[in-house]
């Protein structure tokens, strides 16, 4: 039965073969290979690959440095996702009108999204420069304290998060405005006739009807913020004193600066598990709250 169906469909299988091969070669094989590497102790150059079993996993989980890296990653994720989505939502509600000013503002907010993160990071390094930077200039003009920004362990992660938020917010606004425009105007007219005030309308009508869009953004933002790398690489290299070292940057450092391939691969497996778990949890916890039309 199964074989005959195989035969019957063999032309179809032939058609999907190229895509399947690509998937095997570029997704399944690398994942398998990373898991294999995570069981080794290897320095990338020496021919000896020593099999160490789960030692890498044990070592990492007990290493204060790696715990710090995980904490940084989580902090970065929680703060950037919370702020970028909520601020984007407010902006989107305000921008959901068709005047010249609104489209100008929307375009301006979206622009960071299309600039390479490396250029953005360079720009912000100048803005955050403690001596000549624009931010400190504004702060002192307002009578506030001058901050060290990227140079202090206390503010470095915050600085990197500001850049991350600034970069992603335009994209979020764009998607949310599209979501808002898909809510028909007569629903709002109904709400007006139902004596709903602005706040009630926002929480009882707009948010629920926007929930598929919000859910999509949430998943995308959580995933991408766990994978942040460029800005950290360019602005801080994980410093000062590991205060901005996030998972992907740590993997890069461990693998290609310290040549501890086994540990780096283990970190990658952790990242894979975390992102998978986060996505799974999102679907489990939020999917029931999402209303699809």
């Amino acid at each position: 039965m199964a074989v005959s169906r195989m035969k019957k469909n063999h032309t179809a299988y032939l058609f999907v073969l190229p895509a399947l091969l690509g998937c095997l070669l570029f997704t399944v094989y690398p994942v398998g290979y990373v898991i294999y590497l995570s069981l080794l102790s290897w320095d990338l150059i020496s021919p000896d690959k020593i099999f160490v079993g789960l030692d890498n996993y044990k070592n990492l989980l007990t290493s204060p440095e790696f715990q710090r890296v995980l904490l940084n990653s989580f902090t970065y994720m929680v703060v950037t996702v919370a702020i970028s989505i909520s601020v984007a939502l407010l902006l989107a509600v305000w921008l959901n009108k068709r005047t010249k000013l609104h489209s100008f503002v929307q375009t301006s907010i979206f622009t960071p999204h299309i600039i390479s993160l490396v250029s953005v990071a360079m720009l912000w390094m100048w803005i955050m420069d403690p001596e000549y930077g624009l931010l400190n200039y504004i702060l002192s003009w307002l009578g506030g304290p001058r901050l060290l920004w990227l140079d202090s362990p206390d503010t470095a992660l915050l600085s990197v998060m500001i850049v991350g938020i600034w970069k992603v917010i335009g994209y979020n606004v764009l998607i949310l405005v599209a979501g808002l425009q898909s809510i028909p105007s007569y629903i709002y007219e109904s709400a007006k006739l139902d004596m709903a005030n602005k706040l009630t309308t926002f929480f009882k009508i707009t948010i629920p009807l926007l929930s598929p869009t919000l859910f999509f953004l949430f998943i995308v933002n959580v995933t991408s913020s766990f994978q942040v790398f460029d800005s950290v690489r360019v602005m801080t290299q994980g410093g000062p004193v590991n205060s901005t070292n996030v998972l992907v940057h740590w993997i890069y450092q461990t693998g290609f600066e310290f040549y501890r391939i086994g540990e780096a691969a283990t970190g990658s497996v952790f990242l894979f598990i975390i992102v998978a778990l986060a996505t799974f949890a999102n679907f489990k916890l939020l999917a029931s709250k999402v209303h699809y039309q």
Binding site: Y186, E189, S190, A191, D194, A196
Partner: peptide, 30 residues
């Protein structure tokens, strides 16, 4: 909302994310 009128629209304009009871209750609650 203050004109003491009610309106029925061509495309119904009921709230798709609320149950029938909630749809009716919404205006009364407000």
């Amino acid at each position: 909302g203050d004109r003491e009128i009610a309106m029925v629209f061509q495309n119904y304009a009921i709230y798709p994310h609320m149950t029938i009871r909630e749809n009716i209750d919404f205006g009364l609650k407000n």
